[in-house]
């Protein structure tokens, strides 16, 4: 699980959705796992708005095997959209062969047939009984979909970032997201070619 196995040249991910869905935390945890556990160069930027809840929220990651100059994404390799609005707004920034990951519970009108759809919010509500776990469920799914992001590294980061009393629930969410993605989209990880 080290950065040496994969050569990434500006791999760009946008995590987007509504304020309150934990998008910024998701970006921070994912960035930290990739930077500190895997040893990639990572820049994580986000849009700051005056609104703390509701409204659009996004967090961008640029991941690379060499130092990153320009810290913002230019062409997205992955767009994660946890709301219809975010999907509509950012789909045009996704590369033609990029991967769209949506929360099918929140996004009903898809701009393409080529996407990964998992009902993260629904799973969080029904299986975990905590809607706040949506973001970590998403992280779990991404750990499966992106071969360079290891689930154990993500779990380690979760333990560093979250207070002890909510760790178990979050690990559970991480595993659930991972297995759900694996079950629904077994072939996606093979899509990537890193060299």
């Amino acid at each position: 699980m080290s950065a040496k196995e994969f050569y990434l040249n500006r791999f760009e991910i946008r995590l987007s959705g509504l304020g309150g869905q934990g998008i910024l935390t998701l970006g921070k945890i994912m960035g930290q796992a990739l930077a500190l556990e895997h040893g990639f160069y990572v820049t994580q930027t986000q849009s700051y708005g005056p609104e703390a809840r509701g409204g659009a929220s996004r967090s961008d990651l640029v991941i690379s095997s060499s130092p990153i100059s320009y810290p913002k994404p230019e062409n997205l390799d992955v767009l994660v959209a946890l709301s219809q609005e975010a999907c509509n707004l950012y789909f045009r920034n996704l590369k033609a062969d990029g991967l769209l990951v949506v929360d099918t519970f929140m996004v009903e009108q898809l701009p393409t047939n080529n996407y990964v759809g998992i009902p993260f919010t629904q799973l969080a509500k029904e299986k975990l009984k905590v809607v706040q776990a949506t973001n970590v469920l998403t992280l779990g799914a991404l750990c499966y979909l992106l071969p360079f992001l290891n689930k154990n590294a993500a779990a380690k980061t979760l333990k560093e970032v979250f207070p002890a009393k909510i760790i178990d629930k979050n690990i559970k969410a991480l595993n659930l997201g991972y297995s759900k993605a694996k079950q629904l989209y077994p072939d996606i990880p093979k899509k990537w070619s890193f060299s």
Binding site: G27, T45, Q46, K72
Partner: peptide, 8 residues
């Protein structure tokens, strides 16, 4: 941008 970018 510099103030609000996260990096290692």
């Amino acid at each position: 941008v510099t103030a609000h970018t996260r990096e290692k």
